[in-house]
Amino acid sequence: MGLMNGIDEKFLKKIPGAPVIMTSIEWIINASRANSLWTVTFGLRCCAIEMMHTGATKTDWARFGFEVPAASPRRADVMVVAGTVSKKMVPIVKRLYEQMPDPKYVIAMGACAISGGPFVYDSYSVVYGVDKIIPVDVYIPGCPPRPEALIDGFIKLQKKIMTQKFRK
């Protein structure tokens, strides 16, 4: 059962003699969200090349449930900020983030998106980290991170989604 990959036995219970699986609504919703993450199709700088490579055949990220890059931010669940955010780009990144439907997640990929990276000093045009403008869930260090690191970040995001609680 593909659905049960990596899921603890205590969450799923098969009733003997009947084709019924008992689990919580919370787990079902979280698993549906975590295993069908669509990314916004956009890249800012050189990390985007590595992100494209991650989605291509050699390290195909659809194996882990990240599926396709969405053609519009209105269909996307996760935004990979792959590259330097310049001050001129801030309104556009914000608008993309605001167009995404809830629940939405952000991954800051690479040193530039985390803190400004090599452009920290003597720079008049770079935002020092994308978390200054939008909330970030997972940070992936590297310049640029390897595809394995990006997939690792995605899996960490999936684990984070699986821990979401709906009860107050």
Binding site: K87, V120, Y121, D122, S123, Y124, S125, Y128
Partner: peptide
């Protein structure tokens, strides 16, 4: 923004090396 390539450019969040 002021003219950033002038020698006496100052910016609020500029971190000098």
């Amino acid at each position: 923004m002021d003219a950033p390539l002038r020698k006496d450019f100052k910016c609020d969040d500029l971190k000098p090396l």
